[in-house]
Computed example of a mutant assay.
Amino acid sequence: MASRADARRIVVGVTGASGTPLAARCLRMLREIDGIEVHLVASEAARTTAAYEFDGPFEDLTALADVCHDDAALDAPIASGTFETGGMIVVPCSMKTAAGIASGYSDSLLLRAADVTVKEGRRLVLVAREAPLSVIHLQNLTRLASLPGVSICPPVLSYYHRPESLEDMERHIVAKALQQLGVDVEGFARWGEAS
């Protein structure tokens, strides 16, 4: 892994929405890429959900990041716009988190980091995870999608790349989301390239 001085920093937020395996897949895929320094912040609800969805202790997930920040630490570097990053991905992104970002309500480090990402004009990717979506959810997501640099990238399954396993599907979903941050993942099958 590159040092802080020459790495491209990516902030990864993990919320309590179902989808902890996607967060783990994202962190593993980012570790495979030289020159990326991962800063992780997870909500308390993310830890609760992980107990149902993730094999092993939550520390196994946090160990995949270069730096792990406490969600209550509003004085962490990622809370400031002067801490330069290549953007942020929230995977999975709960509707509570989407509502907080949409309204500028930054009462946690995860929400503050997302708010900073928006105000600094950096890329913010929200792997929005909920079904069915209510009108309130759709209004919040529409508001967010209208902001420059914000991408709503729900974990929608694709089949044209001929997935053979759950891992293939997770890798495709995460690679598509990371593409929104300008992060290219080796082996990502784009339309027309899949065999």
Results as ranks from 00 to 15, higher is better:
Met1His: 12
Asp6Tyr: 08
Val12Asp: 10
Gly13Trp: 03
Gly19Cys: 04
Pro21Leu: 13
Leu22Glu: 13
Ala24Pro: 13
Arg25Val: 06
Leu27Asp: 12
Arg31Asn: 14
Arg31Ser: 13
Glu32Tyr: 02
Ile33Phe: 01
Asp34Tyr: 00
Asp34Gln: 01
Ile36Leu: 04
Glu37Gly: 10
Val38Lys: 02
His39Asn: 03
His39Cys: 05
Leu40Cys: 03
Glu44Ile: 00
Glu44Trp: 03
Ala45Pro: 12
Ala45Met: 13
Ala46Lys: 09
Thr49Asp: 06
Ala50Phe: 11
Ala51Thr: 14
Tyr52Asp: 14
Phe58Leu: 13
Ala63Cys: 06
Leu64Ile: 01
Val67Glu: 01
Cys68Gln: 00
Cys68Arg: 02
His69Arg: 00
Ala73Asn: 10
Ala73Tyr: 00
Leu74Cys: 08
Leu74Glu: 06
Ala76Val: 00
Ile78Arg: 06
Ser80Asn: 09
Thr82Lys: 09
Thr85Phe: 02
Thr85Leu: 00
Met88Arg: 09
Ile89Met: 10
Pro92Phe: 00
Met95Thr: 13
Thr97Asp: 05
Ile101Phe: 09
Ala102Phe: 05
Gly104Met: 04
Gly104Val: 06
Tyr105Thr: 13
Tyr105Val: 10
Ser106His: 01
Asp107Glu: 15
Asp107Val: 05
Arg112Asp: 03
Thr117Tyr: 03
Thr117Gln: 07
Val118Trp: 02
Val118Gln: 04
Lys119Glu: 14
Gly121Leu: 03
Arg122Met: 09
Arg129Met: 04
Glu130Tyr: 08
Pro132Ala: 14
Pro132Glu: 14
Ile136Arg: 04
Leu138Asn: 09
Gln139Ser: 15
Gln139Arg: 15
Leu141Lys: 02
Arg143Phe: 00
Arg143Lys: 07
Arg143Pro: 00
Leu144Met: 11
Pro148Trp: 02
Val150His: 05
Ser151Cys: 10
Cys153Asn: 02
Cys153Val: 04
Pro154Met: 04
Pro154Asn: 05
Pro155Ser: 03
Val156Gln: 04
Leu157Phe: 07
Tyr159Val: 15
Tyr160Thr: 10
His161Lys: 08
Arg162Ile: 12
Arg162Ser: 14
Arg162Gln: 15
Glu164Tyr: 14
Ser165Trp: 14
Arg171Met: 13
Arg171Gly: 10
Ile173Pro: 07
Val174Ala: 05
Leu181Lys: 05
Gly182Val: 10
Val185His: 04
Val185Asn: 07
Glu186Ser: 12
Glu186Trp: 00
Arg190Trp: 14
Trp191Arg: 08
Gly192Trp: 06
Gly192Asn: 09
Ala194Cys: 06
Ala194Phe: 03
